[in-house]
Computed example of a mutant assay.
Amino acid sequence: MTDIVIRALDRDDSRRLAEMYRGDRDFLKHWDPQRPDAFYTDSGQADAIETTLRECTSGRMWSGVVLEDGGLVGRVSLNNILQAPFRSCSLGYWVAQPYSGRGIATEAARQAMQIAFGSLGLHRVDAFAREENAASCRVLEKNGFKKVGLSRGHIHINGRWRDDIMFQRLAPWDDGIRLDPPAS
């Protein structure tokens, strides 16, 4: 059995992430927005990580990497964190193609939900997946996400605007009234 953990993104992750993104470039063009060539370089990933870490420092994001047996195999993030009456964010994740289909993304998403509903004290997590991405839909459903609608023209991928299924999960402590999670 493998050991799957997530940890906060670090500047030292740039080389490995660049290598993984280069390896998945053709695959990702079907699922991710178009990116400049520089994104796939070590220095491009270093720049992207710096931008992401600024968002994390501001409290607008939590970003991490996915590790299997200590080796970096993917990314996971809680994006667009909103506080006050919303207490929500949006989940994003990616596991490099050589590691997919083994439950790694499902476990990474589960651990990200612990962070969202635990230390971040959020009430709701949204996630989006294209209908034809059955694997991503399964990751969300296995983590207790429910389909709540269709977001038409949600994201521009591979030359056109794509629809996404919108998923949502409420905190396990949600009672319809409480603003804050119960004290631990």
Rank of each mutant, 00 (worst) to 15 (best):
V76I: 15
V76H: 01
V76S: 07
S77V: 14
S77T: 11
S77M: 13
L78M: 13
N79M: 11
N80K: 14
N80A: 14
N80F: 10
I81K: 00
I81M: 01
L82N: 11
Q83N: 14
Q83D: 14
P85T: 11
F86T: 15
F86G: 14
F86H: 15
F86E: 14
F86D: 15
R87E: 10
R87Q: 13
C89V: 03
S90R: 15
S90L: 13
L91M: 12
L91I: 06
L91Q: 06
G92S: 13
G92Q: 08
G92P: 01
W94Q: 06
A96K: 01
A96G: 09
A96Y: 02
A96W: 02
Q97M: 15
Q97S: 14
Q97R: 13
Q97I: 15
R102L: 03
R102N: 06
G103Y: 04
I104R: 05
I104K: 01
A105V: 02
A105K: 06
A105I: 03
A109S: 11
A109R: 11
A109E: 02
R110V: 05
A112S: 11
M113V: 10
M113E: 09
Q114A: 15
Q114R: 15
I115T: 14
A116Y: 05
A116S: 10
A116Q: 11
F117K: 12
G118P: 00
G118M: 08
S119A: 11
L120F: 12
L120Y: 12
L120I: 11
G121R: 08
L122K: 04
H123F: 08
H123M: 11
H123E: 12
H123S: 11
R124F: 08
R124E: 14
R124T: 11
R124C: 08
V125A: 06
D126H: 13
A127P: 00
F128D: 05
A129K: 06
A129E: 03
A129T: 05
E131N: 09
N133E: 12
N133G: 06
A135Q: 13
S136E: 02
C137P: 00
C137E: 04
R138W: 05
V139G: 02
V139L: 05
V139R: 07
L140C: 03
L140V: 09
E141N: 10
E141A: 12
E141T: 09
E141Y: 07
K142I: 02
K142M: 04
N143H: 08
N143P: 03
G144C: 09
F145G: 00
F145Y: 04
F145M: 10
K147C: 10
V148D: 13
V148Q: 10
V148Y: 12
L150S: 02
S151I: 03
S151R: 10
S151Y: 08
R152H: 08
R152L: 09
G153E: 13
G153Q: 15
H154P: 02
H154N: 12
I155Y: 04
I155V: 08
I155M: 09
I155G: 01
I155S: 11
N158Y: 04
G159Q: 03
G159W: 01
G159F: 01
G159V: 00
R160M: 02
R160V: 04
W161R: 05
R162M: 08
D164T: 13
M166N: 03
F167V: 05
Q168L: 06
Q168S: 09
Q168M: 08
R169L: 08
L170Y: 07
A171K: 02
P172D: 12
P172C: 09
W173Q: 04
